[in-house]
Nucleic acid binder design. Structure first.
Lengths: 207, 207
DNA sequence: ACCTGAACACCGTTCAAGT
DNA sequence: ACCTGAACACCGTTCAAGT
């Protein structure tokens, strides 16, 4: 409560607000992130924040962009193949977002802000480069994203519990690893028999 | 606003409250479900609801249990194999929960209320019966659940949009079908080479 | 330009009454 | 037992001031 409440001598900044929001997000999760809490963390009136940030939603988006900024750089086709590359990417997304409980789950449900058009294009390009049919690439990318963000949402409560060593337990990581391998195997199979079993443009899969 | 606001002549009942909550959930999604809205839908004071229901969270759980009650019956190993059975189950879970935007995503993040111990045991039993190693069955079940609930969360916003025919579009169902097939393929591969690549009790997968 | 204080329109929920 | 009315402790946010 009384930690870091140094007396404010300088003007409040956008970066300072963002840093405070990220700190609170890690500590308490999105459900406890309030504009009033951010302000109090900064030793300032709630309305002071509004002079630098439009509203709560844009603060959340700011936090999300900050966290996943470096992650978008990690998606590229390396020499060791698309499976290893995708595995690294999914693991790194989880690693980055899992410490911020509730954040990812919240944005997953927003219209389609979660995945920016840029990330979407990157991902589709990745799967096309990996040899997936053009019509299949968006489906494959969306599948991988859906799994990993679902996993992060399910793991959200792990951080909420008051005891220590929250995400280190073997439970969460075992599930994550198993799931990522299943995703890779599933995509590999669908990539191989793409022509015979799945006609994506018709909207009906063969049974 | 003025629909169904018949004059109350009978006593309020738990079932009536639940029905109103489900109606509002379908119409506006969880984010707009408030105790006050439920009360107003029933033509009653907000606090009247509290005489029949403990709090908002238990109302949400009540709604969820009602929706997924019949779904838990659909998970059993049929004659046409575990893949067909699991596909039917995942599709039916999506079909049931997709019309209630936000509900599933909310419960996914709660400690572990989302999946009741009973459903958990059913699922593990299913995968053991399907020939998965005992140590692998919980991971496989959790993977399938994580995907389908993630998919439902991602699709939550589709219902929120004001235009008609919300979940009928080919987009959502194509993604769902592709994902379910990927899940099935992924699990099948992991089931087959379970002994060689994955040692689940050690907590570290071979790389 | 940057911040404060009071206030508004919401929440979930408690509590003291009414019938 | 069943419901109402007023109120409390929160929200996000607006608006009129202060410096």
């Amino acid at each position: 409560l009384d930690v870091l409440k140094r007396v404010r001598s300088q003007a409040l900044s956008r970066e300072e607000i963002l840093a405070a929001a990220l700190r609170l997000l890690r500590r308490d999760g999105l459900s406890r992130l309030t504009m009033r809490a951010v302000a109090s963390e900064l030793g300032v009136t709630p309305m002071a924040v509004y002079h630098h940030i439009e509203d709560k939603d844009s603060l959340i988006r700011l936090a999300y962009d900050e966290i996943s900024a470096s992650a978008s750089g990690t998606l590229h086709l390396d020499e060791d193949g698309w499976e290893a590359s995708l595995r690294r990417y999914l693991m790194s997304v989880w690693e980055r977002l899992a410490p911020y409980p509730g954040l990812d789950g919240y944005l997953m449900e927003q219209p389609n802000i979660n995945v920016s058009p840029q990330i979407m294009r990157f991902g589709i390009q990745f799967f096309e480069d990996a040899g997936f049919a053009p019509a299949q690439a968006p489906l494959a990318w969306s599948f991988a994203l859906t799994y990993i963000h679902g996993r992060i949402s399910v793991d959200a409560h792990l951080r909420q519990s008051p005891d220590a060593a929250p995400l280190q337990g073997p439970g969460a990581r075992d599930h994550l690893r198993y799931g990522v391998e299943a995703v890779l195997h599933g995509l590999r199979v669908l990539r191989e028999d793409a022509q015979t079993t799945f006609h994506s443009t018709t909207g009906t899969a063969r049974e």
